[in-house]
Measured scan of single mutants.
Amino acid sequence: RPMNAFMVWARIHRPALAKANPAANNAEISVQLGLEWNKLSEEQKKPYYDEAQKIKE
């Protein structure tokens, strides 16, 4: 299954978030990633939607 825009973004940002929160488990990191993603504007998300579309094609 191809990655969606959030997954493209999260793949880039997960390592830094995990390093900054070494005690957090994957579920907690995923929740935090979701919160951070939701704070982004549509303009900030656009490159990730574009990349996800390329992956689908």
Rank of each mutant, 00 (worst) to 15 (best):
Q32T: 06
A27M: 10
A18I: 14
N25G: 09
E36S: 05
Q32V: 09
K39H: 04
F6S: 00
M3W: 11
A52H: 03
S30K: 09
E57C: 10
P22H: 03
E57K: 08
Q32S: 05
F6E: 02
A24C: 07
G34Q: 15
F6M: 04
L33A: 03
S30T: 13
Q44F: 04
N21T: 06
A27G: 05
V31R: 15
P22C: 04
A5V: 02
Q32Y: 08
Q32A: 10
Y48E: 00
N26L: 10
H13E: 04
A16V: 13
L40S: 01
Y48P: 00
L33F: 01
R1L: 12
S41L: 04
N38V: 07
M7E: 15
R11E: 15
A20V: 05
K45P: 00
S41N: 08
Q32F: 10
E42V: 10
D50V: 12
P22I: 03
R11Q: 14
P15A: 13
A10W: 05
L33K: 00
N25W: 03
W37R: 00
A10Q: 05
E57P: 07
L35N: 08
A23N: 14
A27N: 10
Q53R: 14
Y49G: 02
I12K: 09
F6W: 03
M7Y: 12
K19T: 06
A24I: 05
Q44K: 07
N26C: 13
V8Y: 10
A20G: 05
K39M: 09
K54D: 05
P15S: 09
L17A: 04
A23E: 13
R1G: 13
Q32C: 09
Y48L: 01
P15K: 11
E36W: 12
R1Y: 13
K45V: 03
V31N: 08
S41M: 03
L33R: 00
L17P: 01
N25K: 06
R11T: 14
S41W: 02
E43A: 12
N4M: 11
N21S: 06
P22W: 03
Q53M: 11
E43T: 08
E28P: 02
E57I: 11
N21H: 11
M7Q: 13
Q44L: 05
Y48S: 01
V31Y: 14
R1N: 11
N38F: 07
K56L: 14
A52N: 02
Y49E: 07
P47Y: 08
L33D: 00
L40E: 00
L35S: 05
K56Y: 12
N4I: 10
E28M: 10
G34L: 15
V8N: 05
E28Y: 07
I55Q: 10
E28L: 06
L35T: 07
K19A: 13
A5T: 01
N4G: 07
N38S: 13
N25I: 04
K54S: 07
H13L: 05
Y49T: 03
A23Q: 13
N26S: 12
R1C: 15
S41I: 02
A23C: 13
M7C: 15
G34A: 15
E28A: 08
E43H: 09
K45Y: 01
K19P: 01
I12A: 09
A10P: 01
R11M: 12
E36R: 08
R11S: 13
Y48T: 00
K19H: 08
A10K: 03
I55K: 06
Y49P: 00
A18G: 03
L33H: 00
Q44P: 00
N25P: 06
L40H: 01
F6C: 06
D50T: 07
E28F: 12
E36Y: 07
K45N: 00
S30M: 15
R1P: 12
Q32G: 03
E51H: 09
A52Q: 02
R1T: 12
M7A: 09
D50G: 04
N21C: 10
Y48H: 01
L35E: 06
E36H: 06
P47Q: 05
I29D: 01
A18V: 15
M3G: 05
E57V: 10
E57N: 11
N4Q: 07
K54E: 06
N26M: 11
N38W: 07
A24R: 07
E43V: 08
A23S: 14
L40R: 00
I29A: 01
S41K: 03
L33I: 02
E57S: 11
N25L: 06
E43N: 07
R11P: 02
Y49V: 06
A52E: 04
S30D: 15
A23W: 14
L33W: 01
K39Q: 07
K56F: 13
K56H: 11
E42Q: 10
G34W: 15
A23P: 03
N26R: 12
I12Q: 09
A20Q: 08
K54R: 14
F6V: 01
G34Y: 15
Q44T: 04
R11Y: 11
Q32D: 02
A52Y: 11
E42D: 13
N38Q: 10
K46W: 05
K56N: 15
M3S: 10
L40I: 03
P47C: 06
Y49H: 07
A5R: 00
D50C: 07
N26I: 08
N38A: 13
M3N: 10
N21Q: 05
K56R: 13
D50A: 11
A10M: 07
K46I: 05
M3P: 09
A20R: 09
P22V: 04
R1E: 14
L35P: 00
E43G: 07
N21K: 04
A5F: 03
R14D: 01
G34R: 15
Q53K: 13
K54H: 09
V31H: 13
Q53L: 11
R1H: 12
A20I: 08
A20F: 04
A10N: 02
A16P: 04
A16I: 15
P2T: 13
W37K: 00
E57T: 13
P2I: 14
P15G: 08
P47H: 05
K56C: 13
E28I: 07
P2D: 15
K19W: 05
K45R: 10
E28V: 05
E36T: 07
K45F: 01
M3H: 09
R11H: 12
A20H: 05
Y48W: 12
K45G: 00
Y48R: 00
M7P: 05
N25F: 03
W9E: 02
L35F: 08
K56E: 11
K46P: 01
K46G: 04
A10L: 09
P15I: 11
L17C: 06
W37M: 00
E42P: 12
N38T: 07
P15M: 11
L33G: 00
Y49L: 05
M7H: 09
Q53W: 05
N21M: 14
W9L: 00
W37T: 00
N21A: 04
A20S: 08
V8E: 06
P15Y: 12
L35K: 08
V8K: 04
N25A: 05
H13S: 04
I55V: 08
P2Y: 13
A27I: 10
A5L: 01
P47I: 06
P47T: 04
K46D: 02
V8D: 04
K46E: 04
A27L: 11
G34M: 15
A10I: 06
V31P: 00
L35W: 07
A5Q: 01
N4V: 09
M7S: 06
I29G: 01
L33M: 04
K45D: 00
N21E: 02
L40K: 02
I55G: 04
N38C: 14
L17S: 02
A18T: 10
P15D: 10
Y48D: 00
E28R: 05
N25C: 06
D50L: 13
K56D: 08
A52I: 07
E43I: 09
K39I: 04
P22F: 03
M3K: 07
A16H: 11
P22Q: 04
E36N: 06
Y48N: 05
L35A: 07
K39P: 00
A18L: 10
A27C: 13
L35C: 05
A16Q: 12
R14V: 03
V8G: 02
A10C: 13
A5H: 01
E42G: 06
E43Q: 10
N25D: 09
E28D: 06
S30L: 15
L33N: 00
D50K: 11
Y48K: 00
R11C: 15
